[in-house]
Amino acid sequence: MTGNISRRAALKAGVGAVALVAAPAVVRAQAKEIVVGGAASHKPWVESIVQPFFEQKYTCKIVYEGTRSLVNLEKMQKNKGNQYLSVVQMDDPVMILAVKEGLLEKLTPDKVPNLANIRPDAVHMDGMWANYLAPWQGIAYNKNVLPNGVASWGDVWDAKFKGRVILPSLQNTEGLANLFMASHLATGKPMSEAEKDTDSGFKQLAKLKPNLLTVYTQMPQAFNLLEQGEAWVIVGALSSYALERKAAGAPIDLAAPKEGIFASPSGICMVQGAPAADLAYAYINEMLGAEVQGKISAPTFALPTNKSVPPPAGMPINATMHSIDWAFVAENRNEWVKRWDREMGI
């Protein structure tokens, strides 16, 4: 019996050792360090969860450079042909700009096997980038003022919300959902059709003007006003921020209204001409894998994209999840921002 086990154990250890020696051999032969660009706000969980896990498994070093998505794009552009970033984690709309400028290397299942294990809608433009997490957008509300939450996106047009509603700017990634939801509310069309009818969306949003307290570009300021009760709702708030504030004790919560919620996915991509490419592929593969997603989805208040990872507790699993067509957004966004200035101004 004991002999059996020890033989099995020895076999396992042997296989493990061979795998360890063989698989990352290429990796070890090359640079032992990769630079990952990402959001500054992600630094805490990358450095406390992802980094120790990855560095130990691959005996290497990760340098995480936290900044804004557009700055990451700028870094890739300025260093084209001589990149120092290997992997970049950024918002989907910025990914499209990076694809257009030929800065990304396509991800393929042979290099990134976990591509097959994530939801199909989390792989974009034929594998130019993939989503490793999906924070969701609903309506953040002040619990002291609205103890029953917000049942529908349409509720915030009610006159009782006069001067109490905050929207994100269309410049912000989280700002676009409102345009599409407004169109859906105005026309009653299914979201996939309503999304293209932005004219109706704008007309509906203009009707919200009397209720607006402000339109923000700086998220912390908006939440500050919500927590103090000056604002009652932030329409289109991100779970990654709202639920973190709630967990920190702020008197707010995030509603998943009946029309559904929006996925606001976080993307990861491979930089074209990335240094230490094998290590970079391994990093991306791990970010899409069940183990890492299982570790990071709860502390980031986001939904995993890996099909085998259950959503963390407290997530609206039954709500309809709408996805945004970011390619359509990229084509039209500057025009929309212009129209927004003219029609939503004070």
């Binding site: 557009l70 410049q171 402000t214 339109v215 923000y216 570009t217 300021q221 500057n334 101004g345 004070i346």
Partner: peptide, 25 residues
């Protein structure tokens, strides 16, 4: 202005910031 009046009131300075930082124009 970006903190006290927000995105609904543009001035030349906020337009400059947006052109460079957001529209990349």
């Amino acid at each position: 202005p970006s903190l006290l009046i927000g995105d609904r009131y543009q001035t030349l300075a906020t337009l400059v910031g947006r052109s460079f930082l957001f529209m990349r124009n």
